[in-house]
Simulated assay, not measured.
Amino acid sequence: MNYSYPIDESWTTEEIIAVVNYFSLIEKAYEKGVEKQDLVAAYNRYKEIVPSKSEEKQLDKQFEKQSGYIPFRVIKKAKDLSPKDIIKM
């Protein structure tokens, strides 16, 4: 990993940890696979921190530019799977 996660300096330490956890699960979905329930929980927490759709898109685009991983595709795939499934991109 030779990139950094998009972080807003106004977030609390707890919020930063939650956002980093979310992006790390996106990475894991591409690299190894991740349980849907873990990803959905992380995404729901991420949306509490980043409720604005435009801000979410901006952060996702920054993450995609840095990593090559597309969060939108992972979340879209998660919505199509049953709760016990593993998400593997």
Score class of each variant (00 low, 15 high):
M1H: 12
M1I: 04
Y3S: 00
P6W: 04
I7G: 00
D8W: 00
E9P: 13
S10V: 06
S10C: 03
W11D: 02
T13F: 10
E14D: 09
I16K: 14
I17K: 13
I17Q: 13
A18K: 10
N21E: 13
Y22P: 08
Y22E: 06
F23C: 07
I26Y: 06
E27T: 10
A29V: 08
E31G: 14
K32M: 08
V34S: 03
Q37A: 04
D38Y: 07
A41D: 12
A41R: 14
A42I: 09
Y43M: 04
N44K: 15
N44L: 14
E48F: 08
V50F: 05
P51K: 05
E55C: 07
K57L: 12
Q58D: 13
Q58W: 09
Q58I: 02
Q58N: 10
D60F: 14
Q62P: 03
F63T: 06
Q66H: 09
G68W: 01
F72E: 15
R73D: 15
V74L: 07
K76S: 13
K77R: 03
K77E: 01
K77V: 01
A78I: 04
K79E: 08
D80K: 13
P83G: 06
I86E: 11
K88T: 08
K88W: 04
K88Q: 14
M89K: 11
